[in-house]
Design a binder for these strands. Structure first.
Lengths: 333, 333
DNA sequence: CTGAAAGCGCTAACAC
DNA sequence: GTGTTAGCGCTTTCAG
């Protein structure tokens, strides 16, 4: 392995000078700079980030812990997060928690070990140990995919409940009174819980109820969703609010294969606004969340905080209901 | 920040002993071990991975560079890769190249800087500089999503061409003679190129031709795919082979909205076998590649090579054509 | 403007 | 068994 001292030797300077040239810090004669640069070229010298991190007390890396990548919307977010990190000179360390709190907590510890300069988390619902560790290590972090002014940690995201309010308002306006929900699994998932809560409270606001048997929780899977849909519609609802687009897609496919006419017989809504939802026929009414923008903001905010030595700024993002063909006026009495 | 010396002081031992306890190396009296463990608890000591990497000359990280995460099949692969890495005690550094060779090459350099112990790449088609750098740094790596016995680097993946042979054979057996292809963009993408080549050569083998105007390249997008499909079918083909499942889904949706009866009027095939392909109606005939298994193997092979000090073993994986409802006998003349 | 030297936190010989 | 010590490769005062 070739190190700074090799470069220094070849260029006939000290390692301090090599360091100055490489980092563009401190004045160096043009002649010297050139000699060093040439030596770097010749030796194909590659600096050692770990050693650098040790000396600098900053690693130049950003961490991200997400529930899974097998969910297009998280993948999209991480893709954007990495892009910004990359462009600002940070490498990204990614961990997948599978929605498992102990594992998540362990991963936070590992991120601290790795010395990431900032950390992206999903949701606000984490073990206290997580925030204690982060606090103790003085590690900047941001919780995404949620926005709660009361949240313990900085939030860059949207209110899942509020987003559902717009869905409920839309359906109520169309005359729907008997509504069902195919929710995402809510255990250890505050986003899913908030979405359910948002639906319940907004229906209440409109004087309507969402009985427990009208709420069915389902995995992130087309197949599971289709099955759950069959169960749910036994309750004769006129509209089904889905916790995410994959569930909505499953519901729609099953409805069509059952011979239902959408939206005449039944309205369906999704959440995330995946590309497919706009392309299916009928196209699915869904809540657009703009995961890429959210993740970009999170990366930028983290980096801004790191480099300016300040705290991470929270930021509420707006969601937007995209009305398409799966929602229509209620036709059942 | 609390370090080993703090722990050592509190436990009344040397840092060497602390190190031994933490790493489970070298014999230590039970009493001492206990004292150290208690001190670690009390101080909430977190070891410093960068310092460890520097001393050990191993970072305990694995790197992965992929074209994008906005493609379910890569996301699935990375998800699996991270899972194995995690379970064997490695952190994952992920970079997204956007299929941009200069950026890719730069990212390889950064991975070397970070000192990852092993690196996953996608495809065999990389700038020579990439392999030179890897070689020079003595960094273990593996190219996935492809298998070529002649490949310069170790391969863990499948032959994209061979996979397409099975598709062609299937269609030819059904009597199709006029075939078209909606291929993925082939610039800087050897997998897409190989798939095209696989179709062309296998048709030739059957005495059939795939004229250039029957090959349309298209982005990874439902919308783009629908548009391209409209163009392609002006050529009156009886079957359309798609370079991936998203393209196939777009083609199918467009075909249906054009009033075509699938597979009576037209056969369509995909590649990747995403969950949706099995759920659409008609369900899509597709090539199953098992990205998760491939990525797991890659992670395991990398780690095995790192820890045993040996070279990475190549491994060819089989693909499997899943025949579903979008392919049927050719009915045109 | 440049070099010498100390030290970031950890591990691995080598003594004891 | 356990402590001492010498680095791992880099940056950064501090002299000159």
């Amino acid at each position: 392995m070739t190190t700074q001292v090799d470069v220094a030797r070849l260029a006939g300077v000290s390692t301090a000078t090599v360091s100055r040239v490489i980092n563009g810090q401190g004045a160096v004669t043009d002649a010297v700079r050139l000699r060093v640069e040439r030596a770097v070229e010749t030796l194909e010298y590659v600096p050692h980030a770990n050693a650098r991190a040790l000396a600098l007390q900053r690693s130049g890396t950003l961490g991200a812990i997400i529930p899974t990548l097998n969910n297009a919307i998280f993948a999209e977010g991480i893709n954007a997060f990495e892009r910004i990190a990359q462009s600002k000179g940070y490498a990204m360390i990614l961990a997948v928690s599978q929605n498992d709190p102990p594992q998540h907590s362990e991963q936070v510890k590992r991120m601290i070990e790795q010395g990431v300069d900032g950390l992206l988390l999903v949701g606000n619902d984490h073990e206290p140990a997580v925030f204690e560790r982060l606090e103790k290590a003085g590690m900047r972090h941001v919780c995404t995919w949620a926005f709660d002014p009361q949240a313990y940690a900085p939030n860059i995201g949207f209110s899942n409940a509020k987003a559902m309010h717009s869905v409920v308002d839309h359906l109520v306006e169309l005359g729907h009174k008997h509504i069902g929900m195919l929710a995402g699994r809510s255990t250890r998932n505050d986003r899913a819980r908030e979405r359910i809560q948002g639906v319940v409270s907004r229906l209440q606001y409109h004087g309507l109820a969402l009985p427990d048997r009208h709420i069915v929780e389902v995995d992130y899977s087309l197949k599971q969703s289709r099955k759950a849909f069959q169960e749910l519609i036994k309750n004769h609802v006129s509209a089904v609010i889905c916790g995410n687009d994959v569930i909505a897609q499953g519901a729609l496919l099953e409805a069509l294969s059952l011979g239902l006419c959408i939206p005449k017989n039944l309205s369906i809504t999704g959440f995330d606004d995946l590309e497919l939802s706009a392309q299916l026929s009928p196209s699915i009414t869904s809540v657009q969340i703009n995961a890429a923008v959210m993740a970009e903001r999170a990366a930028a905010a983290l980096i801004e905080a790191i480099e300016s030595g300040s705290a991470v700024q929270s930021c509420e993002l707006e969601t937007c209901l995209v009305v398409r063909e799966t929602t229509g006026s209620c036709t059942t009495h």
